[in-house]
Amino acid sequence: MSGDSTETRLARARAALGAVHQKVGVERVPDEAPALPLAEALGALLPQGLRRGQVVSVEGATSLMLALGAAASAAGSWTAIVGLPRVGVVAAARRGIELSRLALMPHPGVQAAQVVGACVDGMDVVMLGPRLALSHADRRRLASRARERGSVLIVAGQWDGANVSLKVESSRWRGLGSGDGRLREREMTVVVSGRSQGSRRRVNVTLDVDPGVAWARPGARTVIDEEVA
């Protein structure tokens, strides 16, 4: 036994497992839940796409939450935003969220669990704010309900047992100078971890891609001034 090479032992183990599968009649299908459309720029964050039934937690960037739900909304999904009274609606619309299929529930109060539950039942993408009155048991129940119904929960702040958690480590804006320019383009460093993600990894994402940034480089004027001086 000890003389066997690793390969033969692995092959034997696989065969034994296959025999058990055949005997019991359970063939584990790979998780093939259909995915909602996702913007191409965010493909690096979620290589498997925005799979239905998932919980995605996002820390530190509301715009990333909106960007995650945008392509799905544009393709016909319904979106509910619960407990985020300060969400920028214009930003949501610019990112591609269809406002006629968007409902806001800014202050669900003590009935947060029922409201979110109803949203999970009826809507495709549900975004949750960080300060909802949800207990741990509520959260577990909601996650399993989302899995069952095939809706996606995008949560601001931490969520235990999220399938994917995205944490914005830092973000850098381009386009601003010292008193000139305007905000144009932003690069974020996002730490991706989570239950179905394997090891943690860092991903750089650029939001609001603006082709004008290349030539409207901030600080260009000041550099020239210094050279002249």
Partner: peptide
């Protein structure tokens, strides 16, 4: 000007 802020 755009981009619009995500938190208002």
């Amino acid at each position: 000007p755009d981009p619009a802020p995500a938190t208002v």
